[in-house]
Design a protein around this nucleic acid. Structure first.
Lengths: 144, 144
DNA sequence: TAAACACCCTATAGTGGCTATAGAGTCAAG
DNA sequence: CTTGACTCTATAGCCACTATAGGGTGTTTA
């Protein structure tokens, strides 16, 4: 299987696959005569694992750890449970913060009715103490 | 006012202030004899505006637009309202996605009771079709 | 046989919103 | 006059990719 087929099967792009290889998440595959990467089902399975974890918004570092547990099974799930638990914490705190943002934004939207002489949204954003930043420790989020 | 005082007053770091200057969000301030940046209350107000917007998780590009409306007031709030509205949409879709993630993660956590021979969390993550990625268009989120 | 085309390769730079580091200058207090 | 706190510029790093340039491979078609 060449990289294009693996990409199609796993729903990610060839560049991303090469990136995972470089990042040490995917084992370096053998090459064909023409210097093409040649993958097996094992690679596909591992890549699916990675993609599933990414779909759960885990960082590559977290995934690296899970893969490590997978490669050296210890019979003890407690570290895996702890990792998942910690990730749940990350996500849930991120949700809380975003919910608060949402409330503030909605309040902001309602401020500008067009009745005031100058835009009261801009006034509100200008005023007051600096709001506390919401970005602290979680690694959950992002997209552009 | 030197950069350190401005930083203290607005709750952000000097490097970040210089970064905003370079990004064209803060006007270039005059310099003292010793080549230090010298800020006024106007700078402080503008920086507070920026920080408030950032606390609402707006991108610098969005903030640039708001500042532009502020600098060239048109008496028409509709574009500002649209921007805030769009941002609310971003945040709310991000919340939805994270909530779905959260559900999946909680389901995953409950899978590993320690009763099975091999960790069923890892099995679950390995199995199946690639999950649909949650990162598409929003610019809301992130933190490390 | 040749040219077009789809795929693959490497290497490098860019994204956003900063943070960290290095190496130097400024200025008030002890 | 030296210490220390602050400031300056410039550059590199963070994450998880994406984009670009410049080339090679391999199959299909004119």
């Amino acid at each position: 299987m060449k990289i294009g087929e693996l990409a199609a099967r796993t729903g990610c792009q060839p560049v991303t696959i090469r990136y995972y290889e470089q990042a040490g998440l995917l084992p370096v595959p053998p090459r064909s005569e023409g210097n093409y990467r040649v993958y097996t089902r094992a690679h596909e399975e591992r890549l699916l694992f990675i993609r599933n974890c990414r779909a759960l918004d885990m960082s590559l570092e977290e995934i690296r750890q899970l893969l490590d547990y997978q490669d050296n099974p210890s019979g003890d799930c407690s570290e895996i449970n702890a990792l998942v638990e910690a990730h749940i914490e990350h996500v849930s705190s991120r949700i809380k913060v975003l919910q608060q943002l949402q409330d503030k934004l909605v309040a902001l939207r309602q401020r500008c009715t067009g009745a005031e002489p100058s835009c009261s949204i801009l006034q509100e954003l200008t005023a007051g103490e600096p709001h506390v930043s919401q970005d602290s420790d979680s690694h959950v989020g992002h997209s552009h």
